[in-house]
């Protein structure tokens, strides 16, 4: 069986904070009060949800009007297996719903107790409000049929965090909403190239494996699916030593979100002996003020039982104590 490239999960997630501006702000504020507002468009149509600018004329809109919490299904589709984050976590219908008093349809979920036969176009539905509305489109938990709603409340996705809350203890339900929080969490499978995978597997054995570009002859580590100057995969394998030099570096003094190393630390370009391109790594084992361009360094490997298919097997690089490389020997790598 041919060798397969390595892959691993790549999960990204952030709770986005969205300022909503005055028009949507009034809409969100009303939702927190279990009311729905629409906006009157240039042509007199009432848009729900409100739009800030008219789809026909691009004019700013700001005449907000109350509409009902009940309306009619215009179209629907059935979801047998809800995806993460969707409003109803049992089989449900997505629906375009025209609320009474609105001229456009709102997209939302309709819970029929899991029954696809209980939803139809023209059906009357009403809002099932979230238990604790915060001023967010998710304050509408979902819709249910006006006639014969399900006996039990549908399981729902977790409510979004509230961006602003009314003053505690005041019972003030008129506080205006200017920001909503929207968590966005996605899961991917990230794959390394075949060439990079060979290098990563060698790392698991404690070896540093580069490849030479068959066109320009330069030694790349990591190897490349396409040599950046020639556009062809690197091929001939070249085993490199774990010694080299610092070409250039910076001292990171600043903490930031997602940081994995406590500052201050040195991020340096390390050019291994015999390689034609440096890579970024850490330099420890001396005061940050002692790190120099041209300094000779050697890899400090983690204990063998911690090795896997990653350059992190090298905990950091540290000075060898040898004489610095002359500037002219690496000036063309800067």
């Amino acid at each position: 069986m041919p060798e397969q490239p390595l892959s691993a999960p790549l999960d990204i997630g952030f709770d986005y904070t969205r300022s909503v501006g005055p028009v949507l702000g009034r809409f969100m504020t009303a939702l927190a009060q279990r009311r729905v507002l629409g906006v009157r468009g240039s042509d007199g149509r009432v848009h729900v949800p409100p739009v800030e600018y008219d789809p026909g004329t691009a004019e700013p809109l700001d005449e907000l009007v109350d509409v009902a919490a009940e309306g009619t299904v215009v179209s629907w589709s059935w979801t047998a297996d809800p995806l993460p984050g969707q409003p109803v976590q049992r089989p449900f219908a997505w629906a375009l719903i025209r609320l009474d008093g609105a001229d456009t349809a709102l997209l939302h979920a309709v819970d029929t107790g899991g029954e696809p036969t209980s939803v139809r176009s023209g059906q009357r539905v009403r809002i099932r409000w979230a238990d604790e509305p915060v001023g967010h489109i998710r304050d509408i938990a979902y819709f249910v049929p006006v006639t014969d709603p399900p006996a039990d409340a549908a399981p729902t996705a977790p409510a979004p965090p509230a961006a602003t809350s009314p003053e505690p203890g005041t019972g003030d339900d008129t506080a205006s909403v200017d920001t909503v929080i929207t968590p966005v969490h996605l899961n991917y499978t990230h794959s390394a190239s075949l060439e990079e995978s060979r290098y990563l597997r060698a790392l698991a054995d404690g070896r540093l494996l580069g490849q030479r570009c068959p066109a320009c002859g330069k030694v790349y580590i990591p190897p490349r699916g396409a040599c950046p100057t020639c556009g062809v995969p690197t091929t001939d394998e070249v085993e490199l030593p774990d010694t080299g030099i610092v070409t250039t570096f910076c001292i990171v003094n600043v903490p930031f979100l997602g940081q994995r190393i406590k500052p201050p630390y040195v991020g340096a370009y390390i050019l291994l002996d015999g390689a034609d391109i440096p890579f970024l790594h850490l330099v420890l084992g001396c005061e940050v003020s002692e790190v120099r361009m041209g300094m000779r360094v050697r890899a400090a490997w983690k204990p063998r039982d911690e090795w896997s298919t990653t350059l992190e097997n090298i905990a950091h690089f540290e000075p060898t104590g040898e004489a610095d490389a002359p500037y002219a020997s690496y000036a063309h790598h800067l």
Binding site: R260, F279, L280, T310
Partner: peptide, 23 residues
């Protein structure tokens, strides 16, 4: 964002460009 198989050395745009300023 930490992409699998890479070293977590990244420190935003400042961390990226500072070594080149030193050069």
């Amino acid at each position: 964002i930490r992409v699998p198989f890479t070293m977590p050395v990244g420190a935003g745009a400042g961390g990226y460009f500072a070594p080149h300023v030193r050069s």
